[in-house]
Structures are given as structure tokens and as C-alpha cells.
Design a binder for these strands. Sequence first.
DNA 1: TGTACATCAGTGAACGCGCGTTCACTGATGTAC
DNA 2: TGTACATCAGTGAACGCGCGTTCACTGATGTAC
Lengths: 204, 204
Amino acid sequence: MATVTGTTHVRNSRGEGDKLRIQIVDSATALIDAGTDASTLSLRAIARAAGISAPSIYPHFKNLDLLVAAVVDASFIQLRTVIRQAADAAENPRDALVSACAAYFAFGREFVERYRTMFSADGYGPESGATLALLEQLLGQCVAAGASKSTDVHGDSFIVWAAMHGMTTIARPSRREDWRLGASDRSALFTELVTRLARLDARA
Amino acid sequence: MATVTGTTHVRNSRGEGDKLRIQIVDSATALIDAGTDASTLSLRAIARAAGISAPSIYPHFKNLDLLVAAVVDASFIQLRTVIRQAADAAENPRDALVSACAAYFAFGREFVERYRTMFSADGYGPESGATLALLEQLLGQCVAAGASKSTDVHGDSFIVWAAMHGMTTIARPSRREDWRLGASDRSALFTELVTRLARLDARA
DNA sequence: TGTACATCAGTGAACGCGCGTTCACTGATGTAC
DNA sequence: TGTACATCAGTGAACGCGCGTTCACTGATGTAC
């Protein structure tokens, strides 16, 4: 785990005190991305990383949970943006769904601890529902275009999401190395998982 | 979260000091099952729950991580037993696999925090591989009996496992209540997920 | 234009708390003679 | 059979630590007159 050394904070000028809020969220995000797990993450550690004193956090966040909630919310927005970009870059609904799912997977694998934090917080924040809704919309477009045989878009998008979540969290790097994946590699398995659950047609 | 009140410990007689080890593991398990999450679980809390003094843990466990590892190992054995019983009670390979998966899901939903702990610890312990191997064996029997079209038992059992894991961890009670599952309920979705990923034939 | 003042951004010291860990100990009990 | 002793199971007090939170403060800067 890398140690996040605190940059010394330069005092914001008058009327710009709210800037620190963003800096605090960014520092907390960096701390989590550096591998600090939920149990080690403390208000004081975040203050150190942000280069400020611990009491300076209070004007911006009443407690650690609300601070983490802000990180989680921002992360869900980031995740949704990444998914949407992947979908928008695709040529057809089927590719859009598959690419979107791949982007989700990639996000979770890149920001392991943050992803975990996003799904550890109670209620997942209001942004998680929007991410699922986006997935549902993409699957709906597949059905409309005749690329998916799904007859329950609502339910199927949920199981796609749940299964992706499992694939994202269970297959961590440096774990389960004793269990070889043989000929089929992990991302191929991931695509296969999405294909079957979304009831996509076999590739032409 | 229920508070686990410590039973007062009666001193073991001579030569039976090892009994405390089991009592400590049991107390830690009870503490976790009562909703104590990983960040709150402490050596002292476990000692309190077991009705002993904190230093009394040291002769049995060098540190908290090793104690939790013991809980995790025992839990994987318990999980595997539950799965195996479900499979053994079934009439055919297909039902065996589906029942085994349902048992897995039920375990994870009953012992939410413990399940989470099992998959939070580094390396998952040596018992997790055995659980996966059991799943693989069940899928293999489905293929042999002509109940599954899988051509990659190794890979397919992995994605079944990963997807179940996602379904187990993401669909927690009291969460996502805003997102209604409509006509199709959760356990039906779970069966559907297993059916598709294990490439089981449509029911007769 | 100059000055007094209110406000703002942020600090440093201090508190009580639960934690992991250590240490010397206590008292019961089996065993050797 | 009696007694001294070693061993065993477990304790209580103490330590230093990082934490969340409070409090009175500091010093820069915009604003009113």
C-alpha cells in the first residue's frame, strides 16, 4: 500500500472556503485508491493527506460517514460516465451493452478499494440506482433491435448487474492464483457471462 | 445490531486449555453474525464476548488476523457442508446443482456479515478453493448426464460462482428497496441466473 | 484615501476513549517422592 | 498416605497509540465610514 503524503495546503482566499470541500473529497479518494481500506480510513488520515488540520474538515463534513458518502456519490457518477462513454462509442445496441459492461468491469478492477467502498456504504447512495437504470436502458435497446431475446428487461438487467458485480469483486488480482483459468481467460469469461445473462444472440 | 453479552468463562481444567480456542472462535463467529463488521471487530470485543480477559487470547492466536482466519476457515467448511447436503438430497444432477447453488445463496443471505468477512480476508483461506471444486464437480455431473451443454466446465463453474457471489452480496435485505423486482422475484431470478450460466437445458 | 472592524479560513493544544500488547501475578491441580 | 513442587489456565494493571471532537485562537482580507 502506497502512503499518500500530504501536500501542504495553501489557504484559500476569502469567499473561496468551499474549495476545500472538493480538495478533501479528492484526498479521501486518493487515499482509498492507494489501498486504504474502510477500517483504516480516518478523518485524521484524510486531513493529513489533504495537508490540513483535522478540525478543518468539520465545516465541510459533519462526520466521516458523510465524507465517504460524498466520495461514493462522486464515484458512482464517474462510473456512470465511463459506462455511458463506452456505450456511446459502440456501433450497435449489442456492442453498446457489451462495451458498457466491460467498462464497468474495468472500473472495478482498476479501483478495487474504491469499488468496494461504493458497495459497502449503506444504501449505496442515490447514484447507484441511476447506474442500474442505464444498464436497463441499454438492454432495452438490444431487445428493440432484436439483439436480445430477453422477455424481462427489468429482471435481466438486474442479474447482469449482480453477476458483473460478483465477477468484479471475486476475481481480484493476486488472488486465487492457484486456481488457473486454463484456456479461457478472464475477460472472455466475462463477455460470456454478459452474453448469456442478457440473452444476446450468438455473434454473427 | 444486537450486542453480544459475554458469558462468564469457567476455567478449564488442567490439560484442557485448548478448549478455549474453540470458545474464542465461536464467540468471534457469534459477534460477526450479530452484525459486527470487520472494522469494529476487536480482540478486546471478542474477549468480552467470550467472557475472558484480553490477554487470554494470545496463547491461542498470535493476532486478530489469525483469529479471523480461523473463523473464515470454519465458515468455508460449514458452507461446503451445507452445499453438499443440498446436492446429496437431490434426485438428479441438474437438481443437485441448482439446489447446491440455492443453498449457497441462502447461506450468504443468512450470515451476511460472516459471508462478507469470508471474502474480505486475504487469499480467502485454503477452503474456498474446495468450495469451487465442489461446484465444478456438480456441473461436471450435469454435463455427463446430458443436463448441461457446457463445453468448459472449469470456466463455467467459475462464472456461476462469481455470479452467485454477486447476487449474494449485492441483493441485501433492506437495500435497494426503491428498485422493485416486479413480477419476477429474487429467488426466481437467481435460479434463472444459474440456469443460463451453467447452460442447463430448459426444464422438461 | 485612510482606518477600524467584522468576517472568514484555518490552526494547535487538549480531552477522553478503546485499542493491542506487555508483564508480573494468582490460584488450582496433577505429580514425584 | 502426606507433602512439596512444577505446571497450567487465566487475570489485572499498565503502557503508548491514534482516534474523534472541542475549544479558544490567529492572521489575512474585504468592507463601512
